[in-house]
Write a protein that binds this DNA or RNA. Structure first.
Lengths: 221, 221
DNA sequence: AGGGTGGGTTTGTGATCACAGCATAGGCCA
DNA sequence: TGGCCTATGCTGTGATCACAAACCCACCCT
C-alpha cells in the first residue's frame, strides 16, 4: 500500500517526519498562494491518496486548516475552499491593514540596511513574476516581501494572525490577480522601502495601508 | 464502555450531535475562562475517558485547540496549556487593544438603548462575581460584556480573532485574577457605557484600550 | 550515597474498519 | 416525454488496534 505514494507536493521542507504535518504544510502553501480556486472540494480519501497516507493524517490536516479559517466546513462535513462574500473580503482587508500597519511600525526601528537590500531584491523578483504572468509566484513573492519586513517586528503572535488572514484570502487572491492584467510594478513596495530608509513612520503606515488595501479593493464586485 | 461517560462539562449547548465538537466546545470554554492552570498536561486517552469517547474525537478537538493557539504542542506530541512569557503576554495585550478598539468603534454607530441596557446588566453580574471571589465566573462574564458589545460591529472575522486572543490568554488570566485581591468594580466598563451613550468615539476607544490593557499589565512580573 | 541505566508503562501516530447520511444518476411510471 | 423515486456509490465519523518513542521510577554499579 505504501507504494502508492505520489509525492506530487513540493519536494522541499521534508525535515519533519510527521505525516499530517507534511500534508498540512503542502495544503497550506497551496491555499495561501492561490493554487486552489474558491469553491473547490477536498475529500479525505482524495487527499490521502494524493499524499500516500491514510485518512487519519488527511483528516487532521484538513481540520487544522478549517480551524484556521483556510477551508470551510459544510454542515454535512464536506470541506471546500471558501467563496468569500464582499463583506468578508472587506473585513479581512481591514484586518490586514490593522495588523500589518502595526507590524511595520514595530519593525521600523529595527530595520537595518541588510533588510532594505533584501526587500529590494524581493521586489525585483516580484517584477519578474508580474512580467511572466505567474499568478501563484506573484502572490508567494509578494507575501514573502511582507513577511520579511514583519519578521523584524519581533511579534510572532501578531505575525501568525496576519498569516492566518493571508491564508483566508488565498483562494480569493488568485481570482484577483488572475483578473488584473496590467503589468503592475510594485509601486507601493517602493514607497514602503523609501519610508523605511527615511525612518518616516507616518509615511510607512500610509504606504503599508495602501499596499494592503488597494489590491483587495478591485476584488469587491 | 459507553457507561463510563461522565459529562462533567456544561450541560448546555448539546444541540450538535458531533462528538469531537462537543469535546472541543467544553475544553475551549474551560481554557478561555481560566479553568485550567498554565502548564497542565492533557492526554488523548484521558480526555476520551472523561467525555466517554474514543481517542479519535479527543485527538481532533485537541489539535484544533492547538491550531488556535489555545494549547501548545511539545516536540514529542504532548499537549499542555501554555505558560506564556512576558513578551508574549504584552504582544497579546497589544493585539487585544488593536482588535477590540476597532471592534468597539465599529459597534458604536449601531449601539441602541437595548444594547446599553444589556451591557449594564452584565456589569451588575460582574460585580457579583467580584464580591463572590469567583475567578472563573468573573472572567466569563467579563468576556461576555466585551462579546456583547463587539457583536454589534457586524465583523465576524474580527470578532473570531479577538476570541482567539482571549483563548490564548485564558490560563494566564486565571493566574492574574487569582492574584489580584482587591474588589475591583468595573470602572472602565462604566466609562465604555458612558462613551457609548454620548456617541463619543475617541472616548470609547480610550476606555476600551484602558480596560483591555490595564488588567494584563499587572500580570507582567 | 549518588548517578547512570534498565525495564515497564504511558503516550501519540497512523492504519483499518464498520456505519450512517447524502448526493446523484439511472430507471420507472403516469 | 416529463417528473419522481430508488439504489448505489461516495462521504465523513468514530472505534479499535498495532507500533514506536518517550517517560518514569526503581535498581544497580561505582
Amino acid at each position: 500500500m505504501s507504494i502508492s505514494a505520489k509525492p506530487t507536493a513540493s519536494p522541499s521542507s521534508d525535515t519533519t517526519a510527521s505525516a499530517h504535518d507534511r500534508v498540512y504544510r503542502a495544503l497550506r502553501a497551496r491555499i495561501m498562494y492561490g493554487d486552489i480556486a474558491p469553491g473547490e472540494a477536498l475529500t479525505l480519501r482524495g487527499i490521502g491518496r494524493e499524499f500516500g497516507v491514510s485518512m487519519t493524517p488527511a483528516r487532521e490536516s484538513l481540520r487544522r486548516l478549517v480551524a484556521e479559517g483556510a477551508l470551510s466546513l459544510s454542515s454535512s462535513g464536506r470541506v471546500t475552499t471558501p467563496e468569500l462574500s464582499n463583506e468578508r473580503i472587506e473585513e479581512l482587508a481591514a484586518l490586514r491593514a490593522l495588523l500589518e500597519v502595526e507590524l511595520s511600525s514595530r519593525a521600523l526601528p529595527r530595520a537595518h540596511m541588510a533588510l532594505i537590500d533584501r526587500l529590494h531584491s524581493i521586489n525585483v523578483t516580484i517584477a519578474e513574476m508580474v512580467s511572466k504572468r505567474d499568478a501563484v509566484g506573484y502572490i508567494r513573492t509578494n507575501l514573502e516581501f511582507h513577511r520579511t519586513l514583519y519578521l523584524r517586528a519581533q511579534a510572532p503572535a501578531m505575525l501568525a494572525m496576519a498569516e492566518t488572514v493571508w491564508l483566508q484570502l488565498g483562494p480569493t487572491m488568485r481570482a484577483l490577480y488572475g483578473r488584473l492584467r496590467r503589468t503592475d510594478p510594485p509601486q507601493n513596495h517602493r514607497l514602503i522601502i523609501a519610508a523605511l530608509k527615511a525612518g518616516d513612520e507616518p509615511g510607512l503606515r500610509l504606504a503599508v495601508r495602501s499596499d494592503v488595501t488597494q489590491g483587495l479593493r478591485l476584488l469587491v464586485v
